[in-house]
Simulated assay, not measured.
Amino acid sequence: MDEDDGSDVENGEETQEDEDDEATEVRPLDQDIIIPGLSLLCRTGNGLRHAFIKVVLKDKRLSDIAAISNYVHLRFLDVSNNRISDLSPLLSLTQLLWLKVDKNIVTCFQGQAFAQLVYLQWLSMAANRLTDMDGLVGPALESLILSDNRIQTLHGLESNHFSKLVTLELRGNRLSTTEGINLPNLQRLYLAQNSIKHLEGLDKLESLTTLHLRKNKLTNVEGLSSNMKCLQYINIRSNDILDETCLSSLGHVSKTLRVVVLSENPLDGNTDYRPYILTLIPKLERLDKEPISLEERAEVWKTVNELKEED
């Protein structure tokens, strides 16, 4: 698998987008907007009545969504690409399973309604104006997408608040460290396009299978832990790895690793690091975009054995 995707947002572009957003005419939500977006007619809890459980309200120039609070049977809600900052009207939508709020202007979770959404399993709030995660609680959340915000620190990511979370996306934020993620059940973590210099606190991620760190500022991979007993894929493409010695900590997860992506680091082109990585991780199946052939593996271990005999 290849997890390289996503796009960069330059500060100038971000500022221009903010200015364009503020110049956009906004309007409050009303039934004339809601009704055309309704779909999926289902029976309600008592089985005697029917109600629509899905509504799509994206690209409506909405700023006030108070009217949505009357639709208490909704399970799927998309309000992406609007001008919404206040999500408290969601307080009454206690049946929500899926919520998309991408490309709005939400700045924080404090005072929002997420603690009431006890069945919410999937939440995406990419491209808002979040600076932290304080106040967010998701007892049933399985996937949380907060890419392209302004998050600098990770607080509140505790297992008692997110016991079922398996996928966390924080691409394109302003993180400098991985410290603060205490989620033993997390399986996939996407941190590309941040400013991460240090891997910290990863020993708590015992179930993690995928770690994506493309385009950060790592000079080594110290911080990888033998407690990460399930890690199969790690992407550290486009960082600041200078030489092979900076990669020795990959040995802590060598028993499970199957794919490593290292291209576009300073060591790329200056040295052939494939033999070293194959020696470090004997069961590796792919390095960068090239699979490990039986012939390559045999040649590396032949060389290793010859060196041992010489010693």
Rank of each mutant, 00 (worst) to 15 (best):
N11Q: 14
N11W: 12
D18F: 06
D20C: 00
D21T: 04
R27V: 07
P28K: 06
P28C: 09
D30N: 15
Q31V: 10
I33Q: 08
S39F: 00
L40F: 11
C42Y: 12
C42R: 14
L48A: 15
R49W: 13
A51E: 08
V56R: 12
L57T: 03
D59F: 11
R61Y: 08
I65H: 05
V72I: 15
H73V: 03
L77W: 08
I84V: 14
S85V: 02
S92H: 13
L99H: 00
L99A: 07
K103P: 00
K103L: 03
K103V: 01
F109E: 03
F109Q: 01
F114M: 05
F114N: 02
Q116W: 09
Q116D: 13
Q116N: 11
L117S: 07
Y119P: 02
Q121S: 09
W122C: 06
W122A: 04
L123K: 03
N128R: 00
T131P: 00
G135T: 02
L136N: 02
V137T: 09
L141I: 09
E142R: 11
I145C: 13
I145A: 12
L146N: 06
S147Y: 04
R150F: 12
L154Y: 03
G156L: 08
H161E: 05
L168A: 08
N173K: 06
R174S: 03
L175H: 02
E179V: 04
G180V: 04
I181T: 07
L186F: 02
L189A: 04
Y190D: 06
I196G: 10
K197V: 13
L199D: 07
G201N: 09
G201A: 11
L202I: 13
E206M: 10
S207G: 04
L208K: 01
L208Y: 10
L208W: 11
T209V: 14
T210A: 09
T210W: 06
L211S: 05
L211V: 04
K217Y: 03
T219V: 14
V221Q: 09
E222K: 14
S226N: 15
N227G: 10
C230Y: 10
Q232N: 11
D243F: 06
L257G: 01
R258D: 04
V259Y: 06
S263M: 04
E264W: 02
P266V: 03
D268C: 05
N270T: 08
D272K: 10
D272H: 05
D272G: 07
Y276G: 05
I277F: 02
I277V: 15
P282G: 07
K283E: 15
L284M: 08
R286W: 04
R286E: 09
K289G: 12
E290L: 13
N305P: 01
L307V: 14
E310R: 15
